[in-house]
């Protein structure tokens, strides 16, 4: 019972099926970055000798910004990058210290410690964080991300397993 109508419908269906399978493959590819990698098991980054942070542990010094090299997955490649952290005093932690990620929780600009105002300032939209990383003023919705620190063998190490989640 091949009529003009069935032929048209069949042809249209085939064309739609072919087009959607191609678009399906393309869309799956474009959506690829949504798949998350399994979070890394504890990756400890060396932040320097514990002796260097003695005053900070006692709460007697201002937060200190450090640059640490870290291996990251960057798109199609794995590479070493420098990452900036702020080491701050943390009375509740066993180590007496915590590491803050210096990325503003608002829109991702880099914050830096202002010794004069005793706060972390964001250069983009005026976010202000206290020495513990809590929001003091401006648009940031959350405090700075805090990473646990461990002191082993006289070295300060940052636990980065919470990054890249």
């Amino acid at each position: 019972m091949a009529t003009r109508r069935t032929f048209t419908l069949a042809a249209l269906g085939t064309a739609v099926a072919a087009a959607s399978s191609v678009s399906g493959a393309v869309v799956a590819f474009v959506l690829g970055p949504l798949r998350r990698r399994a979070p890394q098991e504890h990756v400890l980054l060396d932040a320097g000798p514990a002796a260097a942070f003695e005053a900070l542990r006692a709460g007697a010094a201002a937060p200190e910004e450090i640059l640490v090299e870290r291996t990251v997955e960057d798109g199609y490649m794995t590479r070493r990058v420098k990452e900036r952290f702020a080491i701050v005093h943390d009375g509740r932690a066993a180590s007496g210290l915590a590491a803050l990620v210096t990325t503003c929780s608002h829109l991702g600009c880099g914050v830096s410690w202002d010794a004069g105002r005793k706060a972390f300032l964001c250069p983009c939209h005026g976010g202000v964080y206290g020495p513990d990383g809590a929001v003091v003023a401006g648009p940031p919705p959350r405090s700075l991300t805090r990473l646990p620190l461990v002191v082993t063998g006289g070295r300060v190490q940052i636990d980065t397993s919470a990054l890249d989640a």
């Binding site: 990058v81 420098k82 600009c109 880099g110 250069p123 983009c124 939209h125 648009p139 940031p140 919705p141």
Partner: peptide, 30 residues
């Protein structure tokens, strides 16, 4: 340089109104 926190980023003029708007809405209003 992702580690340079001293850089003060400003967008091109045609995105500046949006950029400025972002300063007014805080926390959950973002």
């Amino acid at each position: 340089d992702p580690t340079d926190t001293s850089y003060v980023p400003r967008p091109e003029w045609y995105f500046l109104p949006l950029f400025q708007l972002l300063k007014f809405f805080k926390g959950p209003l973002e």
